[in-house]
């Protein structure tokens, strides 16, 4: 038995499709805005190795191949047979009307095996994969438009300081 998780999310980014496509097509860039991806290594034009942060501090890894690549329009990939988690995804770039930039749609599907291992792997992709993909896309937008990802991590507060 296996469960299929499919998520689809779209965001509009105020940049030309060509610029967004080029950034994404260099798959090594993906960990810069996704929370779970730790590293992507490209071994050939169509082959890459993906490493994600797994539960309990471990990692989950697989090889992926590009299965469709239309410059400035679409990139689609899927894991090669033998991955711990079968997964596939695509990103589509479509000009938004009225100079509003580019509509970026991500579709991902995971097919973790059943049983305890499957549960663990499902958790890897978050309690809410939809929110996770949405957050990743929001960070992609921040990076592309504003040049950096907004944060408040590391700023001062009185959380752990006793009353004076």
């Amino acid at each position: 038995m296996s469960q299929n998780i499919k998520v689809e999310k779209t965001v509009t980014i105020d940049k030309p499709a060509a610029e967004l496509y080029s950034f994404w097509r260099r798959l090594e860039n993906l960990p810069r805005f996704t929370r779970h991806l730790q590293d992507v290594t490209v071994s050939s034009d169509s082959r890459s190795h993906w490493v994600t942060k797994g539960p309990l501090g471990g990692t989950v890894e697989w090889d992926a191949e590009i299965i469709d690549d239309r410059p400035n329009e679409l990139i689609a990939w899927k894991s090669v047979p033998g991955a711990d988690v079968d997964n596939a995804g695509s990103v589509q770039f479509k000009p938004a009307p009225g100079n509003r930039g580019t509509e970026v749609k991500v579709v991902t599907a995971y097919n973790p095996p059943g049983g305890a291992v499957g549960d663990l792997l499902a958790k890897l992709f978050g309690e809410s994969p939809e929110q996770q993909i949405g957050d990743d896309l929001a960070r992609f937008k921040m990076l592309m438009e504003a040049g950096e990802i907004a944060t408040n991590e590391g700023q001062p507060s009185g959380h752990s300081h006793p009353k004076d």
């Binding site: 950096e148 700023q155 001062p156 009185g158 004076d164």
Partner: peptide, 26 residues
């Protein structure tokens, strides 16, 4: 540094907290 921290309704306290640092390039 000294800062005014919120701790609940009508509860604000002057506390010593770490100084802020640059976290992002902008």
């Amino acid at each position: 540094m000294k800062a005014v921290c919120w701790h609940g309704a009508e509860d604000v306290r002057v506390e010593t907290v770490p100084d802020p640092t640059i976290l992002n390039p902008r």
